[in-house]
Design a binder for these strands. Sequence first.
DNA 1: CCTTGAGCCTCCAGTCACTGGAAGCTTTAT
DNA 2: ATAAAGCTTCCAGTGACTGGAGGCTCAAGG
Lengths: 131, 131
Amino acid sequence: MNIGEVAERSGLPPKTIRYYEDIGLICPQRSENGYRAFRETDLHKLAFLGRARALGFSIEDCRTLLGLYEDETRESAQVKAIAAEHLSAIDGKIAQLQAMRETLSHLIDACHGDDRPDCPILTDLSGKMAG
Amino acid sequence: MNIGEVAERSGLPPKTIRYYEDIGLICPQRSENGYRAFRETDLHKLAFLGRARALGFSIEDCRTLLGLYEDETRESAQVKAIAAEHLSAIDGKIAQLQAMRETLSHLIDACHGDDRPDCPILTDLSGKMAG
DNA sequence: CCTTGAGCCTCCAGTCACTGGAAGCTTTAT
DNA sequence: ATAAAGCTTCCAGTGACTGGAGGCTCAAGG
């Protein structure tokens, strides 16, 4: 398989696939013409990576997960620990975004949004200590 | 004021303040010794930037907001539009993270997390089409 | 056989918003 | 006089790609 077909079947762009080879996540063989020659196992790994990335795992987590996937002596606790830590990072981000969302939506509600210059959003950002 | 005092009073690290000057968000004067000489207005701007960044606005949004803040002929609708667009971007991110969270927490619940190798998390990532 | 276009290759630079560190000058305290 | 702290500039790195230049290979059409 050439990179184009692998890109289509894995859903990852060719650029990303080359990048994953660069950083050592996959190691496709080469044809005589210098083209990458992907096997089914490479495709499988790339699909794995695509799904892990879609769940928000970092590249380094993906590397570890792929290693565990290929290690028959793994303990599921190792996998679960990585996933649990990632989940808690996600929860942290959600909380942070929701806090922003809260403040921001209050400010937006308070702003009349017309052609006059006075604006509670700017007033808040400028550090007023309002009553 | 030297940069250290401004850093303390604005809550921004000196590195960040220098960076903001680099990209033209602030323009402090200089003392004879080459040190940046901040005035109250610079501090005020930096605090504004700090709060806008804390709400997740991009640097370019911050630049625009600061411009509007200093423009007495602004229309509050301009500010509101920027904030509303940002709010909708935040909502998008929250939705994406919550979708990840959903999938991930199901997988974590399904994984026994002991010393045995079989793991539903890896099975899912490997692309099983389960029944 | 030649050409055209698609597909592949490598390498470099840019993204975003900083952050770390090196090398060197100035000020302050002892 | 000296040492420490604080300031300066400049360069490089972060994460995970992405865009583009310049050039090679391959398949199809005339």
